[in-house]
Nucleic acid binder design. Structure first.
Lengths: 160, 160
DNA sequence: AAATGATAGATGTATATACATGTAAATAAA
DNA sequence: TTTATTTACATGTATATACATCTATCATTT
């Protein structure tokens, strides 16, 4: 069990060694990009020990949402956090590792449908535990603050 | 000049077609990742028209901070938002485009020092205008809210 | 039914990321 | 001063991203 002996809030200025922000909005944009990178790195490191990349984990997690139904590539794609992820190639790697199975849809032969295997469900279960562990230990925010953060992030994307 | 005819706040639930968040903290994590992707895509599209990638822009911007001083690869690296960016290879592409020049440091022959060219300064000037334009038109947040967002993001990284 | 257009996804290319390893130069230790 | 260690960077590999293009299939129009 890890024991943390100190807590410190790391200001963006220190993290990216820069003091020059023309506005709080400008700083916020860099802060969002930096925090996303920090979070992604944290999660990826934990998943690496299990044998998954962050994006492979995302695809498995999305498939679990419909399991035991199969999902087509497009439906996985629209649920990805990074929408331009190349789902067919992420699926390639998951097929190679035998975590998913791929076949052509009977209904529409253009569609490739994908489903979790037992191995896939198994590794996903471990991955979810590992990621939850990170959230509990490394991502520190009160629920009320998280709610405020969510509305700020949603409002910043007004022009989406 | 573009004219925007409507404004709508896009909730994360709609953006990634998911309704199942176990907590506000969990949602916040996905919201940070999604907003970063959204921002990155917005900026990258604008920069593409100019002939730069987001990371090439970052390196040029960092070099400008010290110009006309030269900077070594490591000093650029610690200022990158995504710290594991492979600075030598980004510099490769900037050298090929003649936006920077690379040479070996006289002081320490292990160091590769890099400096902006006139072409580099010129394209950077255009890139900064383009990115500022995005900020003005597409990133909507009041300064006070941006300040709140900054402290929330910094506090979430407590365990950095 | 044949022609046209739209859609799903496979595939190619350039760039970037994450991380391991190699090499040369600088620094510290013996 | 020779050896060992560290540092700065280059380079190799696997994966991912962004986007263009191609093919098969489905839907629509004529």
């Amino acid at each position: 069990m890890r024991v943390y002996t100190y807590i410190c809030v790391v200001k963006l200025e220190k993290a990216i060694q820069s003091e020059k922000f023309t506005s709080q909005k400008h700083k916020a944009a860099l802060n969002i990009l930096y925090t996303a990178w920090w979070l992604k790195t944290l999660i990826s490191k934990e998943l690496k020990a299990i044998g998954l990349t962050h994006e492979q984990f995302n695809v498995l997690r999305i498939l679990k949402g419909k399991h035991p139904e199969k999902m087509c590539v497009k439906d996985i794609g629209v649920r990805m956090i990074e929408r331009n992820s190349n789902v067919p190639r992420i699926v390639d790697r998951l097929v190679a590792k035998k975590f998913v199975e791929r076949s052509t849809s009977e209904m529409d032969k253009r569609e490739t449908v994908i489903t979790l295997t037992y191995d896939g469900m198994d590794i996903l279960k471990n991955a979810i535990v590992a990621v939850d562990h990170i959230f509990t230990n490394n991502v520190v925010i009160k629920e009320a603050d998280a709610e405020r953060l969510n509305s700020l992030l949603e409002s910043i994307r007004k022009r989406e």
